[in-house]
Amino acid sequence: MARRCVFCGNAGLTREHVIPRWLTDVLPEQARFRGQDQMAVLLHPDHAVDGPHHREMPETFNSSTVKTVCGSCNNGFMNDIETVTRPYLSTMIRGRLAMPLSVEAVTAVATWAVKTSLMAQLTGSEPASIDRVYQDFYATRRPTDACLVWAAAIDDEDWALRAECRLMLYVLDGPPANGDDPPNLLTVAIGLGGLLLYTIIDPVLGPSTWNPTAVFRGALVPLWPDPRPVTWPPSRVLRPAEAWGVCEYMPMLLG
Rank of each mutant, 00 (worst) to 15 (best):
A2P: 11
R3V: 12
V6D: 02
F7C: 08
F7T: 02
G9A: 03
T14W: 00
T14C: 00
W22M: 15
D25H: 07
A31K: 02
A31M: 08
R34S: 02
M39R: 11
A40S: 15
V41L: 01
L42F: 10
P45H: 05
H47T: 10
D50H: 00
E56W: 12
E59I: 08
T65R: 05
T65V: 15
V66N: 09
V69G: 08
V69E: 08
C73Y: 10
N75K: 12
N75S: 13
M78G: 00
M78D: 00
E82M: 06
T83G: 04
T83F: 05
T85M: 12
P87R: 15
Y88E: 13
L89Q: 08
L89F: 03
S90Q: 13
M92S: 04
G95F: 05
M99K: 07
P100R: 08
L101W: 03
A108K: 07
V109D: 05
T111D: 10
V114S: 04
M119Q: 13
A120C: 06
L122A: 09
T123A: 01
G124E: 08
S129C: 12
I130T: 02
I130H: 03
D131K: 06
R132A: 14
D136V: 12
D136N: 09
F137N: 09
A139V: 12
R142Q: 15
T144C: 04
D145E: 08
A152C: 14
D156A: 12
R162V: 01
A163I: 01
E164V: 04
E164C: 04
L167N: 01
M168H: 01
V171M: 03
G174H: 12
D180E: 11
N184V: 06
L185Q: 06
L186N: 03
T187L: 04
L192S: 05
T199V: 09
I201S: 07
P203N: 09
V204C: 05
T213N: 13
P222V: 13
W224T: 05
V230I: 15
V237A: 07
L238H: 04
R239T: 12
C247P: 01
